[in-house]
Simulated scan of single mutants.
Amino acid sequence: MHAPVPHPRRLPQRVVVAAAPGEQLSAYLDRLAEVLDLPLVPLADLSGPAEVDRLAAFDGWVTTGEEAWARPALLERADLVALVDLVGPETFTGRVRRTLRRLRTDARERDRERERETDLAWVEGLALTHPGLAVVRLPDPAAAETWLRALSA
């Protein structure tokens, strides 16, 4: 009798990352694409729906999901959505942002701030709209880093 042959772990090939934009996200996307050995294709580099459809048709990619118009095509082909908080509340930047929000009293300034914040609520609806799609929630920078290291192991 032969010993069972272990099956290699299947890494995701089409990944949509949901996160607040910024330098941390750009660096994280670069590292994720490198670990998975996939091309990173920022949505900002695509000119419209036709290019998003072409991207979705490829066998491997890492991209973001900040554009609502692009999500349907991407989510139909995605293997995984990663909801990543790279600026957790325990970081210095997170504490500064929270303190500044508390200090602001001007209603117009609060409205402008809400417009600038990234709306990631669409991720919560994926269980209904795309029930078979895997979603990884990484609630802070440490969890995001641990997950990235686990992928490369």
Rank of each mutant, 00 (worst) to 15 (best):
E34G: 10
D106L: 12
A70S: 15
E115T: 04
T105E: 04
A56L: 10
R77I: 00
P39A: 12
L46T: 04
G65C: 04
D53H: 06
A33D: 06
D30N: 12
L29N: 02
W69A: 15
V84Y: 08
A27P: 03
P49K: 05
L25Q: 12
R97H: 11
V62C: 10
G94W: 10
A121E: 14
T99E: 09
A70D: 09
A121C: 07
A70F: 13
W69M: 13
L100G: 08
A50F: 00
L38S: 04
L83M: 02
L55P: 00
A44N: 03
E76K: 12
E117S: 10
P72I: 10
L75N: 12
V41W: 10
L46R: 10
E115K: 11
A78Y: 14
L36Y: 00
R116P: 00
R97T: 07
V35G: 06
L25C: 03
A78Q: 11
L43P: 02
A121P: 05
E124H: 01
G125I: 03
D53W: 02
G94A: 00
W122S: 03
E117I: 00
E67V: 15
R97I: 08
L46M: 10
G88H: 01
Y28W: 14
L103E: 11
R102N: 04
E109L: 14
E76P: 01
D59Q: 15
Y28Q: 03
